[in-house]
Amino acid sequence: MIEVQALAKQYGSFSAVRDLSFSVRPGEVLGLVGPNGAGKTTTLRCLAGIIPMTSGTVRVAGHDLAVDPVEAKRHLAFFADEPRLFEYLTVRQHLAFVARIYGVRDHETIATPLLEELELLEKADELPGELSRGMKQKLVIACGLLHSPSVMFFDEPLTGLDPLGIRRMKDSIVRRAQAGAAVVLSSHLLHLLEEVCTNVLILKKGEKVADGTLSEVSAQFSNGEAGVSLEEIFIRATGGTEG
């Protein structure tokens, strides 16, 4: 569903991401972790087609992102850490706009249950300025899910959410994956990885340090010790320093 081969991103002489390869199959949730400046957000932005990669190949739902970006983007949804919304469009107008962009037929029948599920129905005619941060985040999710994407990218999905919102977001990610979506999420919160992710990819200074299921990565860095926490594994994998 997501296939990445030798992805690299260069800013002048600075290499933000180097020779990164991995794949995510339907139903899998890949956790992208690493210290600050490791290249997590750059990787996600390259995968979502927001910024052009310097070299490498990214295939989304079988479509090469560099060759056929429009078709690849039809299958993906990107959720930024900060909810980015159009100031003058109400909740309902956001969904109408997104439906037109993605060509979602009869979008009301999808949007109404989605708004109900996200508890946004009562706010349907309000502008983003009148919504709380959590509500804005929910609206972003509703917009992202409207076209039923098979590939989803989340950048720090729990930022600014209250405990209930965190629980719902985690449930939502798991549910979408169980329904067959391939999910990549970046986060500093290691407990999120333990609860939600099937696979983990650790980045450091733009390079892959480890990749595999949680148990595989644990085994790689536990040095045969039993009961080593994920936090300890993360510190060992990244050498305990910044990106």
């Binding site: 003058y88 469009l89 109408a96 706009f97 037109r100 037929r105």
Partner: peptide, 22 residues
Amino acid sequence: LSESGPPEIAFLWKNLLSMRSA
């Protein structure tokens, strides 16, 4: 705004809406 048709019209719709308010 209908659900099908050129996406350019969706941007026109969105920006006219913003203009009216702004």
